[in-house]
Nucleic acid binder design. Sequence first.
DNA 1: GCATACATGTAAATGGTTACATGATTGG
DNA 2: CCAATCATGTAACCATTTACATGTATGC
Lengths: 197, 197
Amino acid sequence: MQNSPEKTKCDAPSTLSSTEAAVLGLLSRGERSGYDLNKLAEGGVGYVWAPAKSQIYAVLPRLVASGYASARSLRQKRRPDKQLYRLTAKGRRALRAWLEAPAEEPVARNPFLLKVFFGGQMDRVALVAHIERERLEAKAELAELREIEREIAGREESFYGYLTLRYGLAQARARIRWADEVSRELEARDRQPKRAS
Amino acid sequence: MQNSPEKTKCDAPSTLSSTEAAVLGLLSRGERSGYDLNKLAEGGVGYVWAPAKSQIYAVLPRLVASGYASARSLRQKRRPDKQLYRLTAKGRRALRAWLEAPAEEPVARNPFLLKVFFGGQMDRVALVAHIERERLEAKAELAELREIEREIAGREESFYGYLTLRYGLAQARARIRWADEVSRELEARDRQPKRAS
DNA sequence: GCATACATGTAAATGGTTACATGATTGG
DNA sequence: CCAATCATGTAACCATTTACATGTATGC
């Protein structure tokens, strides 16, 4: 899992995985423990990147091995001891390089759309229920994001998070509109039933 | 990789993975070879689900082992022999069940958004370039989808594909609008420079 | 007294990718 | 003659998830 002892000793895999980049990004805000990072991943960044807890703990020592981060352990009396990780200069350079490189586009894999695509193989009622569920989920997400928007709008330190938030808002609105349209269309289609498939 | 000999001999993993479902979905249109399925995955369905070729070949024998599909080999003279797969009644039931079950929502993992989120760590010029690239990509996708739209609009056999296509159209338009807005905002922000971060 | 927060991980499995291997046939 | 299409797969690797394991301290 870690890395093959031969290949990566200290010679830094020239390109970061998104998860590594996300962790470095979070570390760029200051020293953090794995636990801290996990908390953060459940919050704000979580919207754009949410790795499993165990993966965070897996990635941290790897970053240290590559020289992108340094670790120090902190003895605590009333809490379990912890490891604190900090971005190195090299890590900051690597992060920057990753950030500035063009993003590889995400592979489209949306189980919901897959179901719609094969909508002809399922009960009409089930399909309509899917669309309705999509609408409700999108509405819920919209509400949630708007809530966050109210909290962070105008806060200078959340500026970039705010940009991504608005991406989410736009997507959610598009999903709602789509669901509305498709609902209406399915209804219309069912009122004048010509053929099955 | 296949399946642990103990657990799944013929007693069907009660729930399908999306890839298995996609393959069954394609098989529901008739007997196909792995090669055929791969071609299909590069085309229409590819927009909602595009597994690697090797995975298609991996999934097919598994579907046969679970009783969801049957295979027969076809000798050919002037072409390599091939395996043809066909959906069984059990497979059709499993597909239907998968299709009708609520979709698990896709995990949000968008490297582009991750970069925007950490936009403060990169050069302003690089960030602006990212946004511009996003706009161009979204525009290109919009054009591409519109092209397909013109081809399939009104074709009864593409009805469900058309629905998913329009989902893509809506998303692409939302991305373009977002990029426009954000561009303008970044410009405005840079014209009256107050602080760095 | 019990749940929750703190804190770090391991083990095993899944799901998927890339690259490689092979070899015939057809069309330009 | 060369490239593309047909056709099927293996091997190796990577990222990621789920479940498990452990144990203290604080707050209600």
